[in-house]
Amino acid sequence: MHEIGVMIEVVKTVEKFAKQNGVTQIQTLVLQIGELSTVVPRYIKACYPAAIEGTLLENTQLQIEILPGNAICDSCNKVFNILESKSVCPYCNSKNWEMLTGKEFNIKEIVAC
């Protein structure tokens, strides 16, 4: 489970941003995680309390938005969800596609009090 290390780095990044911008209290941290990412959202939620203990984020809420794993078909140019379609274009049955979204891990928003 590498998520604790990931969350510790997120906390460092958010604290640095807060310090640079004069933010002293944070209410909510919003993360975006792609459904094809190597980061598992439920593990992020589980390790969040340990990662924020004793930090500026100690009393914050965590929100996670899951971004779909979408691809564009090289044959028919249609966009489809990779997981739902089992990696095959549902429009033309092609297995040739290019990933558009789904591997992201972003700090989307820091909501200050």
Score class of each variant (00 low, 15 high):
Arg42Asn: 07
Val10Lys: 03
Lys78Glu: 05
Ser85Gln: 06
Ala18Leu: 04
Gln27Thr: 11
Gln63Pro: 03
Asn70Ser: 12
Ile8Leu: 13
Lys78Tyr: 01
Leu83Val: 10
Glu104Lys: 04
Leu100Phe: 05
Ala71Lys: 01
Phe105Gly: 05
Glu65Cys: 01
Leu67Thr: 04
Glu109Ser: 14
Asn106Leu: 15
Glu98Lys: 10
Cys73Arg: 02
Thr60Leu: 02
Pro68Asn: 13
Glu104Arg: 04
Cys73Val: 01
Ser37Val: 00
Met99Gln: 09
Ile107Ser: 06
Ile44Asp: 02
Thr60Asp: 07
Lys103Met: 12
Val111Ser: 07
Thr38Phe: 08
Met1Gly: 12
Lys16Thr: 14
Val23Tyr: 08
Gly5Glu: 07
Glu15Gln: 15
Met99Tyr: 06
Tyr43Asp: 05
Val23Pro: 13
Leu57Trp: 08
Ala51Trp: 02
Met7Gln: 00
Ile107Phe: 09
Cys73Thr: 03
Ile66Ser: 15
Asp74Thr: 00
Phe17Ser: 06
Tyr48Pro: 05
Thr13Ala: 08
Val11Gln: 01
Ala51Ser: 08
Val23Ala: 12
Leu56Asp: 12
His2Ser: 13
Phe80Glu: 01
Thr55Ala: 12
His2Phe: 06
Lys86Val: 05
Thr28Tyr: 03
Ile110Asp: 07
Tyr43Lys: 00
Thr101Phe: 03
Asn59Thr: 11
